[in-house]
């Protein structure tokens, strides 16, 4: 079997790439995609741990399922907001949405 740590390493890699994307991409939709990556990485982590530590307890999978739900909800609302902002500002560059500043 593949050792646990490999799964975890991969998930960590995806997570960090997602972090990098969130912090650096200028397009809002791209940021959202990076967030989905991060959530995805988390899911992998969760399921890997479930399988290798306690495969009989359904907590791992249930948790992952709920993460799916939350990710979906968040993606929907986030995109709705992006569209609303796009309508007003004609731009989805996140840097331009900076009115809550000093």
């Amino acid at each position: 079997m593949i050792p646990l740590w490999m799964y975890l390493a991969v998930a960590a890699g995806i997570f960090c790439i997602g972090t990098y994307g969130v912090l650096t991409r200028r397009n809002a939709v791209a940021i959202l995609m990076s967030v989905e990556l991060m959530l995805n990485a988390v899911n992998i982590n969760l399921v890997a741990f479930w399988r290798y530590i306690e495969p009989l307890n359904m907590a791992g999978q249930a948790f992952a399922a709920f993460v799916f739900v939350v990710a979906a909800a968040e993606a929907a609302v986030g995109l709705a907001i992006i569209i609303a902002v796009y309508r007003n500002r004609r731009s989805v560059i996140v840097e331009d949405v900076n009115m809550l500043k000093w």
Binding site: V22, L23, T24, I31, V94, E95, V97, N98, M99, L100, K101, W102
Partner: peptide
């Protein structure tokens, strides 16, 4: 407080 969310996140 630049208003840029990515900076906050960073």
């Amino acid at each position: 407080q630049t208003g840029r969310i990515q900076q906050y996140l960073l």
